[in-house]
Design a protein around this nucleic acid. Structure first.
Lengths: 104, 104
DNA sequence: AAATCATATAAGTCTGTGCTTATGTATTTT
DNA sequence: AAAATACATAAGCACAGACTTATATGATTT
């Protein structure tokens, strides 16, 4: 199995915040900067790290680039974490709860 | 919500390997060093980082210290990841499969 | 076509972190 | 009680990474 890069990518609080913001919907780099005290290159570099780690995907729209969460990346985190399911004591209840919520 | 420290802790490949080794059962620091080209203090420091992040727990046994995975830490990763369940396309099937396996 | 806009890349700085050796502190063994 | 063992802590070094300013590139607007 290849080394998971997502840990390093998400170890930075700014990148976690960017990732979380993208959970609400796709956005371009300029809009993503709102609320962050960060230069444009800094954001661009963060986005490059997240993209290289396979956590976000990009789509060009003219001179804009829309960024969105890459489901494959989330799936890869889940895959890594599944190794430790035995250490998740309340996993049965939580899973049943989750399935119930999704059935509604 | 407090900042998740586990990402920084698991961003280091050595610490991930230590964590993975502990998934097979509790172990002391000396045994954990087997197979790693690492000094004793380095391992001690890695274990301190994992412990501070709440990922492992320790139990003193005389002059030995047994380390084991802290289920609370695993639960916290799951909790963080649950925010992104909507981006996990195959989650329903996987969860049902997991529940089926656990019922056996 | 010139100016503006959205983004990326380059280069340099500063801080964080992972490593080392040296040493400290209990605990166990002889 | 002295030696050995298991581990932690301290201090220093070297490299990685997050930031900056400056500049480049391509698309849009005027």
């Amino acid at each position: 199995m290849s080394e998971p890069e997502f840990f390093k990518a998400l170890a930075d609080p700014t990148r976690r915040a960017v990732f979380e913001r993208l959970a609400d919907g796709e956005m371009n780099a300029t809009d993503l900067r709102q609320g962050f005290d960060l230069s444009q290159p800094a954001m661009s570099q963060h986005l490059a790290v997240l993209r290289t780690a396979g956590l976000i995907a990009e789509q060009k729209h003219g001179r804009n680039v829309l960024y969105r969460i890459n489901p494959d990346g989330v799936a890869r985190i889940h895959q890594w974490l599944s190794r430790y399911n035995a250490f998740w004591p309340s996993r049965v209840d939580d899973l049943k709860q989750l399935l119930k919520e999704m059935d509604q």
